[in-house]
């Protein structure tokens, strides 16, 4: 049986004095675990952890509106989506989050358009390289997870309708990168003659993003791929993300839930890791906090 209270307590106790969380208690405060912790702890509006966490995130934001991994990282990149999601979870109109949205919308990604290059990339990777999602770092190629996270951030910020072209291109990017048989690998679904297998983490993020913005693009085999890959992986992170994504479709997986519950440690955490604990808490206690808008 999951011990919800002790999990929340673990998160509160793992908060650093500066207000953020690392990937382990006492680890340097970092945007991704801090964002995930806020997604979980926002269930407790009275939690003393919320205000300092919000201040830390605001302090970590760069003047260009984006976020790096932590206070020392001067470059804005994929972590920006986490900054936006976390602040919007606390305040749906938080001005720093809206600056983050603007950064996401202007972030550049490689788009290959020369015919001869496009043909070669199609042969090697089996993808349409003219489509742009979001990269891990600006100016690089697009990948599934940062694309899905950026789409989720734009959806939560209600920015999707105003930037339809950019959103639709990113959705087409996700659809194009689907693995043979459903689900997603990290980027391309094919390489030099071999089909790449789906992986649970990018598949879960892609499904959450598509469920929010383009549910018609999802195929039943994507959901099956997630279900089988999260069980094959068996790690707490894969199970937490998988459960959360399945819940978004109204699908319950009691075995996955039981497996995740079994992985909870005596201190209330999963793997002693605030990031994994926060996502496990969300998976077992309410799911992804936002629902699709009409």
């Amino acid at each position: 049986m999951i011990r919800i209270v002790s999990a929340y307590r673990f998160l509160e106790n793992a908060q650093n004095p500066d207000g953020g969380w690392g990937y382990r208690p006492g680890g340097r405060s970092t945007v991704e675990p801090t964002g995930a912790a806020l997604l979980a702890l926002a269930d407790l509006p009275e939690s003393p952890a919320l205000a300092p966490a919000r201040l830390w995130l605001e302090r970590a934001q760069h003047p260009d509106g984006g976020w790096g991994i932590h206070l020392e990282d001067p470059e804005s990149h994929w972590c920006t989506a986490w900054g936006v999601l976390a602040l919007l979870r606390l305040d749906p109109v938080a001005p720093p989050a809206l600056r983050g949205v603007r950064w996401l919308l202007q972030a550049s990604a490689i788009r290959i358009q020369a015919d001869e290059l496009t043909a070669e990339v199609r042969r090697i990777f089996g993808i349409d390289p003219t489509l742009r999602g979001w990269p891990w770092r600006p100016g690089e190629a697009s990948w599934v997870e940062p694309t899905a996270l950026a789409l989720l951030a734009l959806h939560v910020a209600s920015a999707a309708a105003d930037h339809r072209d950019r959103i639709e291109e990113a959705i087409r990017y996700l659809v194009d990168r689907r693995c043979q048989g459903g689900g997603w690998n990290f980027g391309n679904p094919f390489m030099l003659g071999a089909y790449l297998p789906p992986r649970p983490h990018p598949t879960a993020w892609a499904l959450l993003a598509l469920q929010a913005l383009a549910p018609d693009a999802i195929r039943p085999e994507d959901i099956e791929a997630l279900r089988s890959e999260m069980h094959r992986d068996g790690g707490a992170l894969a199970l937490a993300l998988g459960i959360m994504a399945l819940q978004a479709f109204g699908v319950e997986d009691p075995i996955a839930r039981e497996r995740l519950e079994m992985l909870q440690q005596p201190d209330g955490s999963w793997e002693g890791n605030p990031y994994v604990t926060a996502l496990a808490l969300r998976a077992l206690n309410g799911g992804w906090p936002w629902r699709r808008r009409g």
Binding site: P135, E140, F186
Partner: peptide
């Protein structure tokens, strides 16, 4: 990975 993603695209760039 938390700095350069999965896989580490910067190394390919």
């Amino acid at each position: 990975g938390i700095c350069y993603g999965w896989p580490k695209n910067m190394l390919h760039v």
